[in-house]
Nucleic acid binder design. Structure first.
Length: 568
DNA sequence: GCCGTTTTCGGCCCGACTGTTTTCAGTCG
């Protein structure tokens, strides 16, 4: 028996109870028990107090005991006997929850999406009390949509959609300001929808203009406080707009940024102080509602520091408030150590990239074009690299407010060799090693390649250490534990790639790297000047691992970087 | 089902919107 099995059992029990239309507090109690175990860092064998944990009581404790002694749960078995498996997908249909599903099952013996569809087509559903014609039509349509639509949208697609939507919002005069909230603001890797807080005195007019401006597949809800639509974009996604006044903005932004668990913790905290949090403000005993000029002020009201959106997760961030001051922030970034130019597959010259980095106020930067193995990217031969070094040194001479270092993003070849000899590497200030080929090799071979890079004395950093593209490809599946160990042993830096396509190291690995004391760099891997702008996304993503600024070498001043990295 | 520095019973975060109802339950975030 392991912890995961217990957690999954609780989640299944909750799901089945929900389908039976059980009391939702009871359902929530099982979900809560699952999350208590999930959040406890210990393994099952280390948890001798498991039955006394807060959130585990008589009922959930009995399930644990049953699982430990017999390997199965009687409670779950009974539920499985009672509830047909085909009902579970019904919960994915918008508008259907446990109660309605239970009613449909009672009245029409619905036990699957197929039987629900048939019943709708025979117009039997609209005869059930509590259901009507409109519900029946909606259900049929949702069943069709469900068949086409798959899961969540990766962050890089959300980013594009958000840009397009905001371009339209900007044109609406009645909007005083807007800000994206929700999971995208929290820098989650994937989102199921996008939310905006819109400040306006004229919600009706704004609603009409948004409806007229955006490509819409379906209007989900359109009231005076909220507009909810399905966007008919290349990658369809739902969008929510909340209309508030200026003074409600901070609390609305907080509320709709979530996470849900974070909000619950905040509201419990408020309640313990005889106050009540809603999206409109903080209400005290007398019914007086207080509003705030910023989220920072809102948090301060509860004696908390500003909690960055990306770490608003399960509520435990409130318990770690004193660690927040050390967290890396986008404002602390002084350098970008991974970018490309027209020498390989970038879109801008060395000088243009330098100008763009100067505009960011960076104190230093590294030009790191591809190496010759990567023919598709016009990778540099040793001869061209030497010429590029000359150009970079010359450009560097021109500026005294930024230091431009010579680097490379060198391929680690499929056979484990490195793409440049040490004689060449010696002449560079900063060497990145990356895998761009033969992702499908067995893990052993991948690790041999990474080991070759780690033990080479001229390599400084391993870039995008998994090669994943979010929502599209898994990458090359390295043994990250081993890589982190080597990075520690050989003093190599590991990269967080700020590109919303990549974002690796991913959070759980970054936590391991943090705990191992391995140095981290956050880089844009920019192939164009405007891509330098994605740095905050990488930094905010890295905050999820509670990474302190001192461990992120981009926060170091030039002198420290030279001393500890270039001349180490 | 779980919990208790007012509580062992009566709460459990809070509010918007829809569709079905004639005042509100269910769902959603």
């Amino acid at each position: 028996m392991n912890k995961k099995t217990i957690i999954r059992t609780f989640e299944k029990i909750a799901l089945y109870m929900e389908l039976l239309g059980e009391n939702h507090f009871k359902v929530a109690a099982f979900r809560k028990a699952a999350s208590v175990l999930e959040l406890d860092p210990r393994s099952l064998s280390e948890m001798d107090d498991i039955l006394t944990l807060k959130g585990i009581g008589k009922g959930t404790g009995a399930v644990i005991t049953d699982l430990m002694e017999n390997g199965t749960s009687e409670v779950l078995k009974e539920l499985e006997d009672k509830v047909p498996k085909g009902l579970i997908p019904l919960l994915n249909i918008p508008g259907l929850g446990g109660k309605k599903i239970a009613k449909l099952r009672e009245a029409l013996n619905i036990d699957s999406v197929e039987s629900l569809q048939a019943a709708c087509e025979k117009q039997e559903v609209s005869k059930v009390p509590g259901f009507g014609k409109k519900t029946e039509e909606n259900l049929l349509r949702e069943i069709e949509i469900l068949a086409q639509r798959s899961g969540k949208t990766p962050i890089w697609q959300v980013a594009k959609i958000a840009d397009a939507v905001e371009a339209e919002l900007q044109l609406i005069d009645e909007i005083q300001k807007y800000q994206v909230a929700g999971s995208f603001r929290r820098r989650e890797e994937e989102s199921s929808d996008v939310d905006w807080i819109v400040v306006t005195e004229q919600p009706k007019a704004v609603k009409e203009k948004i409806l007229a401006a955006l490509p819409i597949e379906k209007i989900i809800a359109a009231g005076d406080a909220k507009l909810s639509i399905s966007l008919d974009t290349e990658h369809p996604i739902d969008a929510d707009f909340r209309f508030v006044t200026e003074d409600q903005f901070a609390t609305a932004l907080h509320h709709f940024t979530g996470s849900a668990a974070h909000n619950v913790r905040m509201r419990q905290l408020a309640k313990s102080r005889k106050q009540k949090i809603s999206e409109y403000g903080v209400e005290d005993k007398s019914g007086q509602v207080q509003t705030f000029s910023s989220e920072k002020e809102f948090f301060a009201h509860f004696d908390l520091p500003f909690i960055p959106p990306s770490i608003r997760k399960d509520g435990t961030e409130l318990d770690r408030a004193d660690e927040i001051a050390q967290l890396v922030t986008p404002e602390q970034i002084r350098s970008d150590l991974h970018m490309h130019t027209t020498w390989s597959d970038g879109g801008y010259s060395v000088e243009e990239m330098v100008e763009a980095c100067r505009a960011k106020g960076y104190s230093h930067m590294v030009i790191t074009d591809h190496s010759h193995y990567l023919k598709v990217a016009n990778g540099l031969t040793p001869e061209r690299l030497l010429k590029q070094i000359e150009e970079i040194r010359a450009v560097n001479e021109k500026y005294d407010d930024i230091e431009v270092f010579c680097g490379t993003e060198m391929d680690i070849l499929p056979d484990g060799r490195l793409d440049f000899d040490d004689e060449i590497l010696k002449q560079l200030d900063f060497v990145i090693a990356s895998i761009h080929s033969s992702f499908n090799q067995p893990q052993e071979q991948i690790m041999e390649r990474l080991y070759a890079a780690c033990k080479n004395p001229y390599v400084h950093m391993i870039a995008h250490p998994t090669g994943r593209i979010i929502g599209q490809r898994e990458g090359y599946n390295p043994d990250i534990d081993q890589l982190i160990t080597w990075a520690g042993e050989y003093g190599k830096i590991l990269e967080v790639n700020a590109s919303p396509y990549r974002l690796d190291l991913r959070t759980e690995h970054l936590i391991q790297a943090k705990n191992a004391g391995v140095l981290i760099a956050i880089n844009t891997d920019a192939h164009a000047t405007e891509q330098l702008d994605i740095m905050p996304i990488g930094v905010e993503y890295a905050q999820k691992a509670w990474l302190p600024a001192e461990q992120v070498i981009n926060t170091w001043p030039l002198e420290t970087f030279i001393e500890k990295v270039i001349r180490r």
